[in-house]
Design a protein around this nucleic acid. Structure first.
Length: 892
RNA sequence: GGGCGGUUAGCUCAGUUGGUAGAGCAACUCGUUUACACCGAGUAGGUCACAAGUUCGAGUCUUGUACCGCCCACCA
């Protein structure tokens, strides 16, 4: 590419495709295990194959890819494992929905056909997901991509099951579970969401058996469960009811008598009537109350959320809602209904199907959490796993510390890992094993039909992806992984589970740091939701603004610790930034065609401006390098932006233009070359495509040995595998930065004078006077007169301690420099006077503030000397400025 | 009911150890200067939600209040 015929815009669509392919062809992201190198590894949270990726994924990809690219450049043996999750219930629900739209169903197809169909679905979505990731520039190892139902992965699952079963950690038991009638499966507590909903509280009276004219009134939000009541509970110390404990009531609408029991846990005298109906088969509290009081369990609701044969005949077969209506009517007719109140309650709903979850007693498989939680909790509490931001630590570990409930892992689904348990003819467990039993033995056995909770397999992700249970070289080298980056909503569901699984089987943490990235919200601050159509497709956005623009924004906001509102303006800004970089580099390339890349930067020849930009570059490198360690992406990105756009383009390049025409050319070229190289390397983790294109196709044409710079171990052909830059400490120059700052301020005053006086910015002003008594400063100003000439567009700058003041002139002041811009014929005396007066008023306000502060004896006495001194100097300067302007007003 | 965030310019957000507030977008005024009009220069705009406290000094620390958001919790 020749810089001269480069377009003024960055053709991102073509170039993104081009580099995706080249990187892939070189297998840059498929690392070999290199034991002598330090490892850096991340296991990408496997997206569910339920659909395509959304903005949240794009955010997570941006963050992880930035880290991985940075570390790769820094010479780490870097592995980013990618893959996909079978997402049991989620995928099954999606496929079933598809079948329904085709007029068929899972049941009609049968298990085998249904699974075939689901594998097809998986293949389709997995390909689309990987395609999206590559499109976004994810430098993941797709050659090592894993799927949670791969052969090897499945073996890992079975091994975990069998080991935990043998250790007694996995067991089978009949208990109350969360039943999702829509998907016909059990759910874990964590898959049930409860949100407040409007409902009612029905007050019902139960007549005492010994005296049907006396009643005890209970309140309930679920009157249909009345027919499953096994007791009424009251607080044992409740004086209203104490005497009734041990007696019975006639349960309305049935012919059963149920006891009144005393139970301090479940009955709160202050709530409602103080008496509670107890339905052990359909309520978690009541279940426990039943256990405490030796109550029988009577299940009256079946798997379809209908009343079953244990309910009075009249209600049998009715859906729960219909039964509720019928029962309430009958209660009212029988005189049992006291009143109905509006009431906000918390029904549990399946996070997948949205159906109201029915608590039911069922035999299921469980994991004994108390046996696993300890080491995982300790790892977090002892800081061996660090959460970033830190405040998420509690959210991640509290669940493991508190009264944790056992984890129900069996699911009545078809899509998933079938439980490796076989039963004999009598229903007893005959075999549990990693490998299928010998067909001869298994002749009369049947396999457990249930599959495992999808999170059971996700829990093994960081190590199963590396080949566990085999002792692979990858596992040895890359485990534990370095960082886990995730959304906050699965800290318990997933992150905590990886933690305890890893501790049990590998006796170590699964990752050293947990990065919790921001949630991307809609423009108006709502959660993005596919069903509401507020979800935003990252591909659409990247097609509109380019991947680099999107990633630049996402990397910034995703690590800000705050949730971020999506805004297209920000992406547009990102795109403009990319264009700016593109054009700045285009300009440099145009001016570097005759550059000898052997030319070193000669600090002896460096002017103030050179010293300044190199010092700024030094600061930039420090900030960006730092961000790869402490995840301070927002700061790094802001600095990249202001360095490139403001410092480098607006000031340095403008200054460079005239110098490139003179004897200084080679020296300036060396600095441009070095800055461009460093800038491109530093921005590559965040904007991989544009940086790669400019580096490989532009800069490398000028220096074929570019890839050996910065101590590269092996010469790099492309930026993606080039070395991370370091800016020498001797480039840091605080004094130059401060001095340049004062020059820039004078330039701003000059520009301001021109603008106020209506001198067009493109017209060269003849001359300007800078007057100051500070001799050192005078030298500085004189030495750098080019700065004013180039940036304030002044032909000649006069620096002196005393200069005659022209009649027609505009006046300004900066620090202790009096600035005069002669403008014969352009000055409206009245207007100039007003302008100066305005300036003076402003100064007076600041002066007053300073005087007040310095006038306070306690300030002078107690504040640090440097602060007091600074204030005094500032006051002095402001007074000088005020005086100067006042003199001008008088002169007018 | 407990816990955690947030409240800063019209909008979206920065603000590192307390030293007197910044960016992007939008607005307004100039400008077709050979890298870029997806540009350049300039202007305007904020009692940092409210109240009290600590301090010479608070956007920054403490306490309380209000509103918004999230997480947890078996109040029937």
């Amino acid at each position: 590419m020749s810089a001269l015929n480069l377009p003024t815009r960055f053709d991102y669509a073509t170039i993104e495709q081009k580099w995706t392919k080249i990187w892939d062809d070189h297998a840059y992201f498929h690392p070999q295990v290199e034991p002598h190198k330090k490892p850096f590894s991340i296991a990408f949270p496997p997206p569910n194959v339920t659909g395509i990726l959304h903005m949240g994924h794009a955010a997570n990809i941006s963050v992880q890819d930035a880290l991985v690219r940075g570390k790769r450049m820094q010479g780490y043996n870097t592995l980013w494992t990618v893959g996909a999750d079978h997402a049991g219930i989620g995928t099954q629900v999606m496929v079933e929905r598809q079948l329904k739209s085709e007029g068929t169903s899972r049941q009609a197809l049968g298990r085998e056909k249904f699974l075939e169909r689901t594998w097809q679905w998986k293949a389709d979505y997995e390909a689309r997901i990987h395609g999206q990731m590559k499109h976004l520039g994810a430098s993941g190892d797709f050659r090592r991509a894993r799927f949670t139902m791969d052969e090897g992965y499945s073996r890992a699952i079975r091994k975990v099951f069998v080991e935990w079963y043998n250790a007694g950690i996995i067991y089978r038991d009949n208990r109350l579970v969360n039943w999702d009638p829509a998907s016909q499966t059990v759910l874990s507590d964590l898959e049930v969401e409860s949100k407040e909903e409007d409902g009612h509280l029905w007050h019902i009276r139960y007549p005492l058996s010994e005296d049907p004219n006396t009643f005890i009134t209970v309140a309930t939000t679920r009157p249909e469960t009345l027919v499953g009541d096994m007791a009424v509970a009251v607080h044992p110390e409740d004086e209203r009811y104490q005497h009734l404990i041990g007696k019975t009531v006639d349960l309305p609408l049935t012919d059963r008598k149920i006891p009144i029991v005393g139970d301090a846990e479940v009955a709160d005298p202050a709530f409602g009537s103080g008496a509670v109906k107890i339905t052990p088969a359909h309520d978690f509290n009541d279940w426990e109350c039943g256990q405490r009081n030796g109550l029988e369990i009577l299940q009256v609701i079946d798997l379809n959320a209908c009343m079953n044969v244990n309910a009075p005949v009249k209600y049998q077969g009715l859906k729960v809602n219909a039964a509720r209506k019928a029962i309430v009517e009958d209660l009212e007719a029988g005189g049992f209904l006291v009143k109905v109140e509006d009431h906000v309650y918390l029904p549990g709903r399946s996070e997948r199907t949205g159906a109201i979850v029915q608590p039911l007693p069922l035999v299921q498989w469980w994991v004994d959490m108390k046996r696993l939680a300890g080491p995982a909790r300790d790892a977090v509490r002892e800081g061996r796993i660090r959460y970033v931001p830190e405040r998420f630590t509690d959210e991640g570990v509290e669940w493991l510390e508190k009264d944790i409930r056992d984890w129900c892992i069996s699911r009545q689904l078809w899509w998933g890992h079938q439980i490796p348990v076989w039963y004999d003819a009598s229903g007893e467990i005959a075999y549990v094993g990693v490998d299928d039993p010998d067909p001869e033995d298994a002749k009369n056995w049947t396999r457990d039909e249930d599959v495992l909770d999808t999170w059971f397999s996700s829990a093994l992700w960081p190590f199963a992806t590396l080949g566990w249970p085999d002792e692979t070289a990858e596992l040895k080298h890359f485990y534990p992984t370095s960082v886990l980056s995730t959304a906050r909503d699965i800290l318990k569901l997933w992150v905590a589970r990886m933690n305890f699984s890893s501790h049990y089987f590998l006796n170590t943490v699964p990752f050293e740091q947990v990065l919790v990235h921001a949630t991307i919200l809609t423009h108006d601050g709502k959660r993005m939701s596919k069903s509401k159509g507020t979800g935003i497709d990252p591909l659409e956005m990247s097609q509109r603004y380019g991947v680099d623009a999107c990633r630049f924004w996402l990397s910034e906001v995703s690590m800000s610790g705050q949730s971020a509102r999506f805004s297209e303006e920000k992406l547009q800004n990102g795109q403009h930034f990319v264009t700016k970089i593109w054009n700045a580099c285009r300009f440099m390339l145009m001016n570097l065609e005759d550059f000898d890349p052997q030319t070193p930067i000669d600090l002896d020849k460096a002017t103030l401006v050179d010293q300044w930009i190199l010092s700024r570059l030094h600061g930039l490198e420090k900030a960006v390098s730092q961000s790869l360690t402490d995840f301070s992406f927002p700061q790094a990105i802001k600095q990249l932006y202001t360095f490139i756009w403001n410092d480098f383009c607006d000031w340095y390049l403008e200054m460079a233009k005239p110098r490139l025409q003179g004897s200084d050319r080679a020296h300036v070229q060396a600095i441009l070359f070095h800055c461009m190289d460093t800038m491109l390397r530093l921005m590559h983790p965040f904007m991989p495509f544009v940086s790669e294109e400019l580096w490989s196709e532009g800069l490398q044409k000028i220096d074929p040995n570019l890839g050996t710079r910065f101590g590269a171990e092996t010469p790099a052909q492309h930026l993606t595998v080039a070395a991370w830059p370091t800016v020498p400490a001797e480039f840091a120059h605080a004094e130059a930065e401060a001095q340049m700052e004062s020059l820039m301020d004078i330039v701003r005053v000059l520009r301001n004078l021109r603008a106020e006086m209506g001198v067009p910015a493109n017209k060269l002003a003849e001359e300007a006077f800078l007057r100051t008594d500070d001799t050192a400063l005078r030298t500085l100003l004189a030495d750098n007169s080019l700065v004013f000439e180039a940036l304030a567009k002044i032909k000649t700058i006069h620096v002196a301690s005393d200069i005659p003041t022209p009649e027609q002139a505009a006046h300004g002041v900066s620090q202790n420099v009096q600035i005069t811009l002669p403008l014969a014929g352009l000055v409206d005396v009245e207007k100039e006077r007003e302008r100066l007066q305005r300036e003076i008023v402003k100064l007076e306000k600041d002066i007053q503030g300073l005087q007040q502060r310095l006038g306070n004896p306690r300030f002078v006495e107690r504040a640090p000397e440097s602060v007091v001194k600074e204030a005094q100097e500032q006051l002095h300067e402001l007074n000088f400025q005020k005086q100067t302007l006042e003199q001008r007003v008088e002169a007018l």
